[in-house]
Amino acid sequence: MIEARSLSRHYGDLVAVDGISFTVETGQVLGFLGPNGAGKSTTMKILTGFLPPTSGTAVINGHDIISDSLAVRREIGYLPEGAPLYGEMSVIKFLQFVAHARGYRRAEANSKATKAADRLNLGHVLQQRIDTLSKGYKRRVGLAQAVLHDPQVLILDEPTDGLDPNQKHEVRELISTMSENRIIVISTHILEEVDALCNRAMIIAGGKLVADDTPTGLIERSRYHNAVTLSVDNLQAAASALSNLPEAAKVEVRDDEITVFPEPDSQLLASVNRVIAEQGWQVNALRLEAGRLDEVFRTITSEVEQLEELA
């Protein structure tokens, strides 16, 4: 369990993390979302014991990050932002070094290193110098290093940044298979990733926790939630007909599509279908929207920015 208690971190006058509290239970995959400079990485650096908080603390599996940092670090696997690595080492030597640092000896260290490399499909670059690897491979070495000791708590700062679509998929699979009986915290700018991977999402903005919900819960906050988007031949006529529906709160026309936003708790889709049938429109496309995470993200984070400008 991770228990963050009003964590704050100041850099001079700048408040990078501003009194964040939360708890994460085993089995949760938590996604940190937030604009650049929101404080995601800073929070992760604090949780992993690298950066001391200015105030507050966190307890990870019963160990305080300040007074019992070594025990915390034993439990955690961490991929720092940008996946820093010792470039002059070969992949296998590097992983063996991490295994030794984690207290494994000789044969066990070697087998842990090989296993971690296999998990990230690094088998054919084991002897290659790390600084000659492509960016995506470096990221995979960073991930292999983080999962090497099967940690109870996995903290990954932008794990899929710089990976090709196939590798993104592989890494997401890896995270999914590891998520049972563990805590995984990832940060990402890829919103679908949160939907695909996480069962909990936090939005951080200006160092504050501004939303803490399931990905579905966040999506449902979107004004697009249960909206109906359709494409018909005569856009303007259709738009005005649809706006007369009692279930329609608002109608927007963009490019060659009409989006109808629902009144709360209304059966919009059924009514739209009825109108289409009555009018005999030629419908090219029709879909019920689940909601748009990027729109929720923008709405929530821009509110914070406006508040900060006022302050």
Binding site: G49, F50, L70, R73, I76, P80, L85, A101, R102, Q145
Partner: peptide
């Protein structure tokens, strides 16, 4: 400079 200090000091090494 390379950021490996973050890697090194978040391993269980004092």
């Amino acid at each position: 400079k390379s950021g490996t200090i973050e890697l090194l000091l978040t391993l269980p090494i004092t």
